[in-house]
Structures are given as C-alpha cells and as structure tokens.
Design a protein around this nucleic acid. Structure first.
Lengths: 200, 200
DNA sequence: GTCTATATCGGGATAGAC
DNA sequence: GTCTATCCCGATATAGAC
C-alpha cells in the first residue's frame, strides 16, 4: 500500500487487529497476521502501537466498551416487567447474532484476567441496575431468587453462541441454516421459560 | 528429583501437564512451567512425550474421555422422566463443582478445533442418546422442542461455571463461599424451571 | 509514514554425557 | 532415565534508510 495521505491507517490496523484478536485470542495471535490483514508491514504496527500488548488493550477497550454500551441500552428501558423481559431476551440474542465471536472473546478474557474485565464492566454498568431489576422482579413475584433468575436468563441467551459448534454438530449435524432458525425460535422459547418461572 | 526407579514419572508429568493446560490452555502454556510443576527438567519432557503437541493430545484425550464417560453415566439411567431430569441436573452440577475449570477447557478447545472435539464427543457419546431423550421428553409433553429444551438444560448448568468470575463479582462482590451456596441452590432452581417448562 | 535490516529474547527440540 | 549444553526457529521490538 502506498504512503498514507488520509489518516485512516490506524483505523485499518484497529479493524484488522479486532478481527484477528477476536478469532485467535491474545496468545494465539501473531503480529504478522494482523499486519497482513491490514495490508501493511509488520514493523509499521509498532510505529502506531508500540507493542502487541498496547494494541490488544485498545481493541479490548473498544470491544468491551461497545458491548457494555449495548447491554446497558437494552437493560435500562422503562416498561412493565414482562414486556421488558421479552425485549431483553430478544435484543440480547440479536446482539450476539450480529457479533458471533464477541461473547467467546469476552468470556476468554474474563477468565484470563477477571479483575481487569470486571473493572471495565463495573465502571460501565449502571450502578443501580441490579437492584432495579431485582425490585421489578420482586414486584412481579417476590419468591424468585433474583440472582438465579438473572443467571438463567444470561445463560440461556449466551451459551448457545459460545458453544456454537456443539449446537451445530449435536443438533443439526452441521447444517448451516439450522442454527439461524434455532436461534430465532430461541427468543420465544427462553422468554416463555422465564415467564413460566415467575408466574405463580 | 533423583533417578526414577518406580515408573511414575510419566504419570507425574501427565498430572502436571493436565493442571497447567487446564489453567492456561494450549497457547498460553510453556513447557518449562509443566517441567517445574513435575519437578523435572524441561528436556526430560521431550524424552517422555516427543513434543508439546503430543503431550497436549494425551491430556486432551484423557480429560475429554473422562468427561464424556461421566456425562454418559448420568444420561443413561433408567427412570421416569422427571426423576431422571432431577438427577441429570444434580449430577451435572456436581461434576462441574469437582472439576471447576474443565468446562472452560473443553469450551475453549471446542472453538479452537471444533471437528476434533466433536469427533471425540461423537465417538464416545451413545449414538441413540438424543433420540431416546427426545422420545422420553415427548412422552411427557410432545409440544416442547427437544433441542431448545436440552440446550436450556445444558446452558443453565454449565454457564455459571464457565463465567464464574462474572457470577462472583456481579452477584457476590467476590465473597468466596457465596458461590458454593449459589451453586447448591441452583440445582433445585434449574430443575424447577425445567419442570415448569414441560408441565402443560 | 513506511520500509529493510537487525537485535533480542524465549521456547521447543535434539545430541550426548552420565 | 535424567541431566547440561546447544541448536534452531519464530515472534516482538528497534534503528535507520528512504
């Protein structure tokens, strides 16, 4: 690629890095791979981002930040509890549908370096979200454990994506489109389960 | 360590390797670390297992094999469906309680190399398990999607373990014992949700 | 800003002594 | 069987030319 007149090389690098890091993780990624993908020489990476670690940090910040942002957007809508629940499930699954490897990346990072991620999460997440959710849940049915309930919600939405190959092979023998319809049906299935769980 | 008279060095290496690989994954692991943990020189590893890859293979085989074995044992008991469900959930969670990092490891490997893992899974899993489970489920309630139901069962049991730091921080601010009781309560919570889902 | 050349380091693997 | 010494390679990182 010729000399960079417009200043978008940095952006291109970040895009490439995001892509590779998402797929390979920090340990599995080699800088050359990112360089190739950004159509740039390997050393030039170090011109823009002094080290691999620094580059990784940038990507991490952006990804987690964006993720948190979207989750917050979903969680803080003002509606009757069941409607809200429906939207949360729906939007959650949509989010993962359009960012297939993101949950895996965050999960991996969460275990590699829990404190760092949880710091990002805590800073970004609305302080009072949990108590508000708990309050609304208990307004609807006070006998349900909020943490168990939330955990179930998250689990059922996220896990099929982080274990996608399992779903593919176990249920559909690798048929491509089957996963799409499975995920689509999942929205109502999960919602129904949750409603059942809190309806006395 | 002195010369090995009894032949348990290999075993010790496997133990150490299992431990390190489980924590760090294939990419994150360095051979020196395993050598240290086995109290042996780094080069001796190569005497027993020609390469890192080979050593990893051995560990992987054993771990996944053992895992499959236990899951199979749980799944193939002969009981009325609801009782069976209760036992499956209970045993599943117990399995993860005593092997905290195992699910993470398998999940990671599943995404790193889906075909290899799924091959191991397919070989080991009873061919007719799914159809049998589906049959029994539909005997109890024919209107429930078997794949959605199974996915929910697995998700709710496994996910809290693979996202353990999230659970810790989000719900308990890192209190150590809280996770234990959470997991204990989870057995009945998940079971109740599943029963609710299939009771017309 | 981007390249080529090079330094440095770390980890996997092998040879050979004991 | 286990060690020490060494080889080799690949990846990060830097210096300096253009």
């Amino acid at each position: 690629m010729q000399n960079n007149v417009n200043g978008n090389t940095e952006k291109r690098i970040l895009e490439a890095a995001k892509h590779v890091f998402l797929q390979q993780g920090m340990d599995g990624t080699v800088m050359q791979h990112i360089a190739d993908e950004a159509d740039i020489s390997r050393t030039s990476l170090h011109y823009y981002f002094r080290s691999k670690e620094k580059l990784y940090e940038s990507v991490l910040q952006e990804l987690v930040g964006r993720f948190i942002g979207q989750v917050n957007g979903i969680m803080t809508q003002d509606l009757p509890f069941p409607e809200k629940l429906k939207i949360i499930v729906h939007e959650y699954i949509e989010l993962f549908k359009s960012n297939p490897v993101l949950p895996n990346f965050i999960l991996h990072e969460l275990n590699r370096n829990p404190d760092k991620i949880m710091l990002l999460l805590s800073e970004a997440l609305h302080r009072d979200f949990r108590s508000r959710f708990t309050e609304e849940l208990h307004g609807y049915n006070p006998d349900v454990s909020a943490s168990q309930f939330m955990m179930s919600l998250i689990s059922m939405c996220v896990f099929p994506f982080v274990a996608r190959p399992l779903v593919h092979h176990l249920f559909f023998d690798g048929r491509k489109d089957a996963f799409e319809t499975f995920v689509e049906e999942r929205k109502t299935f999960v919602f129904d389960m949750l409603i059942n769980a809190i309806t006395p």
